[in-house]
């Protein structure tokens, strides 16, 4: 081989290696996926870079997708109840279920009615938790929080903050009023709005994920409506006084699902990423993310999580919690718009 050929081979192999290293997987995710340590094992194994774009709320994701070019995104993490909506919009493609851990998934998290449409699976649950009531146990007792209707009775005026997401909070109020979140209709909205506006009168602040956590962690408020283990579990070591409870009326269960974009240019790699997220290691890292902790959908993560982590997540109480929690409301387009109008009035009050 001449020196020139050797040089050409060297340059060629370097370019190929760089091409592999510079391959990117683009994922649209909630903030709990953005820890560098969470994606690092996948990046190392496949020699790719995972680029994560963080959003909050399905509407924000849809805005981003609509202003992107086809093929820009590979993986989508979305609220479980919104999977049919994004499938109807042609955003998610079929998922290969062969190597996904359905046998160790918590049964309540399989959610076939959301993930399987016309016999085709489009997404799989990856994480779940509850929107309920977080509180400072040095100021209030669990008994104080047992009746959800007290939240909007004025008893806790100025001492509570509200998580700024209309679906879980309005779902919580519906549960508190004895309604079924799965069958909410336009007729239910006046009663929900009345309670919601009364709640606003008692609220010190209304904020998104980080602002909500900050409000209760810094003692600005003593109660967070819409909180739950996603607020307190990660702070247990430093702030053991932060607690959460499912009131007598129940709570709302949230769940995140993950799927592959229909127009992804690298569906096989995207599928591998879904497999990694659902693996015990991926699930344990996701459950203890720095943005917020919550239960992994795959029970096999128990083998990787430490006892302290499982205690903070209240692993052993999940059967009882799951039985007492209802899923997020899943409104149709008309009801969703009406609920958002109510929420805008709540914010403007």
């Amino acid at each position: 081989m001449t020196k020139t050929n050797l040089l050409a081979a060297l340059v060629g192999s370097t370019c190929l290696a760089n091409a592999a290293l510079s391959q990117e997987l683009n994922a649209l995710v909630w903030c709990d996926h953005t820890d560098a340590s969470f994606v690092a094992p996948f990046e190392e194994e496949f020699g790719v870079t995972v680029k994560l774009k963080e959003y909050e709320g399905t509407g924000a994701a849809l805005s981003l997708i609509e202003t992107s070019q086809p093929g820009d995104w590979d993986v989508l993490v979305v609220d479980g109840i919104d999977v049919p909506r994004v499938v109807a919009a042609g955003i998610l493609g079929p998922l290969n279920t062969d190597e996904l851990p359905y046998d160790t998934l918590f049964p309540e998290l399989v959610m076939e009615e959301n993930h399987v449409i016309d016999g085709v699976t489009y997404a799989i649950s990856e994480k779940y938790g509850y929107n309920t009531v977080s509180f400072n146990s040095e100021v209030f007792t669990a008994e104080d929080m047992a009746d959800m209707t007290r939240l909007w009775s004025g008893d806790f005026a100025g001492q509570l903050a509200v998580y700024d997401y209309y679906l879980p909070v309005m779902g919580m109020i519906a549960v508190g009023l004895g309604m079924d979140t799965a069958t909410l209709s336009m007729d239910d909205l006046p009663a929900i709005e009345e309670a919601l506006l009364a709640l606003k009168d008692s609220a010190s602040s209304v904020g998104e994920v980080v602002a909500s956590q900050t409000a209760i962690a810094t003692g600005e408020v003593d109660i967070l409506v819409g909180g739950g283990e996603w607020v307190t579990a990660g702070l247990t070591a430093d702030l053991p006084n932060l607690d959460w409870i499912i009131p007598e009326q129940g709570a709302v269960r949230w769940s995140q699902s993950i799927g592959v974009f229909a127009d992804s240019a690298q569906p096989d790699l995207a599928q591998e990423f879904v497999k990694y997220v659902l693996s015990p290691e991926g699930q344990a890292a996701l459950a203890t993310s720095s943005c917020y902790w919550a239960m992994p959908a795959n029970a096999a993560a128990a083998d990787v999580l430490t006892d302290d982590q499982k205690r903070a997540l209240r692993w052993d109480d999940q059967a009882s919690y799951l039985a007492r929690a209802q899923l997020y409301p899943a409104p149709d387009a008309e009801l969703d718009a009406a609920m958002q109008d109510v929420w805008t009035r709540f914010l403007a009050r």
């Binding site: 909050e56 509407g59 805005s63 609509e66 958002q340 805008t344």
Partner: peptide, 10 residues
């Protein structure tokens, strides 16, 4: 921002 982030109503 509510229109963009929640409603995707550009």
């Amino acid at each position: 921002m509510l229109q963009i982030g929640r409603r995707a109503d550009l």
